[in-house]
């Protein structure tokens, strides 16, 4: 079996505060194979973006990786000094963020930003880098790339800006792209364009993707495998089809039932009562137990780890029961 591009083991992200330590990501493990798209889905506060930031080493202080390890192509990267990490960021890991307006520098032409990134990481002359930048802009579908390269970010629309950001993420042929809510700020028709583009380009460049989003629809269209996060932990992880069609964790099932679809019209949406617990008040046992319709005694005491459930892994005592008989 091929060596995974990214391997995260028992990752724990903590935020020390005056009122005690908050654990934003707790004992999260997953790996991404070459060319694979892993979706990370969850509601606000689930820790999905925090996991992404930890991988690229961009946690906002005082947040820090408190335990666990992150390996990129077998090399440990969570303990690297700042300068070393900078060489990896942009070169081996590309990043796409939610808001394309804030991830581009408004004072520089987009060409300058692309050329700068290319020159920082690749041994090229300025002319070569510019030619490469134009090629990338064409690849992401920006019409008139030769002229548009000298425009400023504000001269682009939201969808076009997100295309520029994708070009920027791809410009040094990274092995992994971390896309944090890449389509959330966009309209549905533009979202469809960007998803199709991202999927096609990553397949062409053979690059793996960690796609962080709250939108199950985007995951269903794009990802190979999906990790569903709840209150800082992975509730369920497995192939997209298994998780969406035959969810094993009650949270995943509830989440899927809560999404209105256009293929059928339910009289009433399946709702999960309550809300995700705040980080300073995560319940004992399974974090989902106060909202879970299938809760039983053990859930309130013991915290379940991920265990095999059909084609996927689910952190639920019910799943264990099903396996044992």
């Amino acid at each position: 079996m091929a060596e995974p591009v990214l391997e995260v083991k028992n990752l724990r992200v903590e935020f020390p505060t005056r009122r005690g330590t908050l654990v934003a990501v707790d004992d999260v493990s997953f790996s991404i194979a070459p060319g694979e798209v892993l979706g990370v889905v969850g509601e606000s506060g689930a820790g999905k973006s925090m996991t992404g930031s930890a991988v690229i080493g961009l946690l906002t202080p005082p947040g820090r990786v408190a335990a666990g390890e992150i390996r990129l192509m077998g090399r440990r990267i969570d303990k690297l000094p700042y300068g070393e990490m900078r060489k990896i960021r942009g070169r081996q890991i590309g990043a796409i963020f939610q808001d394309p307006l804030t991830s581009l520098n408004p004072l520089y032409r987009i060409g300058d930003q692309l050329v700068e990134t290319i020159l920082t990481h690749l041994p090229m002359t300025k002319a070569e880098a510019r030619a490469r930048a134009i090629g990338l802009l064409k690849e992401v579908g920006i019409p008139g790339a030769e002229d548009r390269i000298d425009h400023y970010p504000h001269q682009f629309s939201g969808g076009m800006r997100q295309r520029v950001v994708i070009a920027l993420a791809l410009c040094c042929n990274p092995t992994l792209i971390i896309a944090d809510e890449p389509t959330t700020a966009l309209d549905v028709s533009i979202q469809a364009q960007i998803i199709t583009l991202l999927k096609r380009l990553c397949a062409e460049h053979g690059c793996s993707v960690m796609l962080v989003t709250h939108d199950m629809g985007v995951i269903a269209e794009t990802a190979d495998r999906v990790a569903v996060m709840y209150a800082g932990r992975i509730a369920e992880i497995g192939p997209v089809r298994d998780v969406i069609k035959h969810a094993h964790h009650p949270y995943t099932r509830g989440l899927m039932g809560a999404i209105p679809t256009i293929s059928e019209r339910e009289g009433r949406l399946n709702q999960i009562d309550g809300a995700m617990p705040r980080l300073n008040a995560i319940p004992r046992g399974c974090a989902f137990n106060p909202r879970c319709p299938e809760v039983f005694d053990r859930c309130r005491v013991d915290r379940p780890d991920l265990m095999r459930a059909g084609g996927s892994l689910a952190a639920c005592w019910k799943a264990e029961e099903a396996v044992n008989g």
Partner: peptide, 21 residues
């Protein structure tokens, strides 16, 4: 607009995103 809705049923429907903004 209807074509642009992500397909949660995973029916494998191919969709053609309309160009332009």
């Amino acid at each position: 607009l209807l074509d642009a809705i992500p397909d949660l049923d995973m029916s494998g429907r191919s969709r053609t995103p309309v160009a332009g903004e």
